[in-house]
Design a protein around this nucleic acid. Structure first.
Lengths: 212, 212
DNA sequence: CCGCGATGTATCGGTCCGATACATCGCACG
DNA sequence: CGTGCGATGTATCGGACCGATACATCGCGG
């Protein structure tokens, strides 16, 4: 998961670790708290060893020398390689079961702008299926095993069930949107939120095959 | 977290691993998928080493012998000890930061029936605070950094923000309920669930008269 | 009689987290 | 003028938890 997110982010710009974490936190803030350095740095090292990214110590630039004295520990800037981009595309294409759990889906969704429509659709439907299963499980418990559980546990299940139903509806909207027309956002029916100039999406297809 | 949940469950009845997992899945189904055996068994071993639980191989009962031949691997039944109950009470009392993250809160909430009202209130308020912070973070991103993010990422944030607002409202209700009156459930107008002598939660624990 | 799904115990490698350590920089406050 | 403090920045270590896997028994239907 982290590998996927890092590869995705580095396609937008080279970054150093701290920056990467901030961007990651901003982009994934809705689904997970904050990436830990204890996973970030080892993963960066792993990616580098695999050849997906390269790391380069930031040079003091035009400043002649003065490397002595406090031996300033320079920031390490990571850049994605061609193989890394390939790897990212491959990770998008193959959707394993982990693609549909909470974190996996969230991360994939966050990079939908770099995902082709067919894959988007596939992931959305897989996620819906998974949530529907969870929903059925909760309904079962609330129906059949209700008297075995205490009031607090039941309340928790009810809240979870509600969240499931809500997410299924959200996914339905996204799927419908994705199928007919390629609008990326769900139009908010109730709350008339301003800015409707957003209906024309920036991603007409994924790859802005950027020319270097 | 797993330690907490196991200790809590084993206070209701002794169980073997498979059963434990099923009960755990039923009780926590709203917040996490399913406990893996890869964490369950090592944790049981750890708890046993610490003296919180004891394990006993299920004897073939009255069946004289026949231990030979296929050497049936008996089920291992785990029972909580007095020290284990003490440990559980201690884990309830001390609320660290992990008590308020998604999983931690869910597990604590699932055992609210064994938690005193003051602690329940403290946990609910801590959780609310945490969710409010997450909500503010999302609002910030949606407000200030909106143009830096693509439409899909924004939609994800919106959905997350909605979930936060909903959870805060849910917590508010629970807190209000907890404060005035000791009703364990949000007043569900429709379902008149019998037994209202339940207003005093079972702190003495020990309810299920399990008879082998 | 044979497979297959449920029951049941257990390990291994790997991902990720939380705590911790250490170092630099700019700025507000006394 | 210094002094501390929060943001920036890199990095490691132990531990929690997961997913895959292995193996064994049991009842049931084909």
């Amino acid at each position: 998961m982290l590998e996927f997110a890092i590869l995705g982010l580095l396609q937008e710009a080279p970054m150093h670790g701290y920056e990467l974490r901030k961007e990651l936190t901003a982009k994934l803030g809705a689904i997970r708290a904050a990436i830990s350095y204890g996973s970030l740095y080892p993963t960066l090292r792993r990616l580098q060893a695999a050849g997906w990214i390269t790391e380069a110590a930031e040079t003091p630039a035009t400043a002649e020398e003065v490397p002595a004295l406090t031996s300033r520990r320079g920031r390490v800037v990571y850049t994605i390689t061609a193989e890394g981009k390939e790897r990212f595309a491959q990770l998008i294409a193959q959707a394993g079961p982990e693609t549909y759990d909470d974190t996996g889906f969230g991360v994939h969704f966050a990079f939908f702008a770099r995902t082709d429509q067919a894959t988007r659709l596939r992931i959305l439907e897989g996620r819906r299926r998974k949530i529907e299963e969870r929903r059925e499980g909760l309904r079962d418990v609330l129906g059949r095993a209700a008297e075995r559980l205490d009031a607090y546990t039941l309340e928790l299940q009810r809240h979870g069930l509600d969240a499931c139903e809500r997410e299924v509806r959200w996914l339905e909207e996204l799927i419908a949107n994705e199928r007919s027309g390629r609008a990326p956002t769900v139009p908010q029916p109730g709350t008339a939120g301003g800015r409707r100039e957003n209906d024309s999406p920036p991603p007409p297809g994924e790859s802005r095959t950027k020319r270097p």
